[in-house]
Each structure stands twice: as C-alpha cells, then as structure tokens.
Amino acid sequence: MVPTVQVAVLGACGVGKTSIVRRFVAQDFQEEYTPTEYRELYRASAVLSGRLYELHILDVPNLQRYPATSGQEWMDPRFRGLRNSRAFILVFDICSPESFHHVKQLRQQIIESSSKTPLIIVVGNKRDQQKHRFAPRHVLSVLVKKSWKCGYLECSARSNWHVLLLFKELLISATSRGRSTNPSICLQGALHRERCSIM
C-alpha cells in the first residue's frame, strides 16, 4: 500500500488545530470558532518528490493530558488511535502564553510515554496577529529547537501562510527518519533551506 504517515494534531482550545487541518485538506477557513467535539480523521494524499504518500491526520478535541498508556487512551473514545501516531503537530497561539505552556506539557507527556522518540513539530498559529504576540519569534524558535529538540514553525491558517510548508516538513521528516538519528536536526536543516527560498 501507499506509505501512510499518521499525524495527530494537539494543542489547547481555540489555537486553531482544526483550522490548520481544514486549511490543508479542504482549502477552507471559517472565521467563527466552533470547538471540535469529536475525534476526526482526515485523509489526504500528497506527492513528495515523485512519491505518493497518504497522510492520516487525527484532529482531536483539546485533551488535558496525553494518554500515558493504551488503557487510558481507550477510556476516552475521542482519543482513540492517538498513541499510534508517528508524528505530532503541537499547536499554540502566538498570542497566548498559556497555550504555549500547554504545548510544553504535552510534549513532555508524549516523550515520557513513548518508547521511541516521536517526531514533534511545534507550530505557532495565528501569525496574522503578529502585533499581539507574547514573545519574539526567535526566542520561541531557539527554545523549542535547542532545548525541546523539536521542529519549530509559525503559520497562519487564516491567511494560508506556511500551512503547506508545515505538512511538507512533516512529511519530509517522517519519511526520512530512518536516515537521520535526530529528527530535530534534520528538520532544522530542512526548515532553514525552505526559509531562504520563501523570504
């Protein structure tokens, strides 16, 4: 079958998880906020350097705690399949320090409960609200990349900025994991290159 990458999108309430996913798969954006109540699986196909991939993107409502064991995962049907994900997109709102803190906790919980180092990309959403951000980009970027060892990226689902880049990076990192021992290093390199080409 076509190689499939399972991704879970996590983060605090109202940071724009569903918006990012919908922007990517369905090319739409809704201004008004509808909290996601159920777990939803999106399937998207993508072609990356001539190869066909399938992305299974799991969009779940905000969870207080990442399920540490499969038992916990099955307790709540909304989170089913979460622990099978090979990659995580942790979304925060660049205007909300609390959401960033939540992402920090989530990352810790994910790493503690997985046997392998999972692929994690931290994403600052709502880039269109640049003026209200709580911390400069480079501060967050350095913190995430250096001490959390995760990929970092900012995007805006509303203006469709860098959403595609996010999934492209994810796909590149997820498919090239065998080659690089440290996902964050390979991700950084890739990000750097792409940043040059877009700016």
Partner: peptide, 23 residues
C-alpha cells in the same frame, strides 16, 4: 501561496473523513 517547490497539493478533498469513527 503559490509555492512551486511544494509538491503537496491543496486538496479539495473528497472523502476527508473516514468512517472508522465509532462515534
């Protein structure tokens, strides 16, 4: 964003969700 270097495409998707939801 017209990014020619991106292979991934905007999907105007068909079956965005899959029915493996028990809910």
């Amino acid at each position: 964003p017209r990014l020619s270097w991106i292979d991934t495409l905007y999907s105007n998707f068909n079956y965005g969700t899959d029915g493996y939801d028990a809910e």
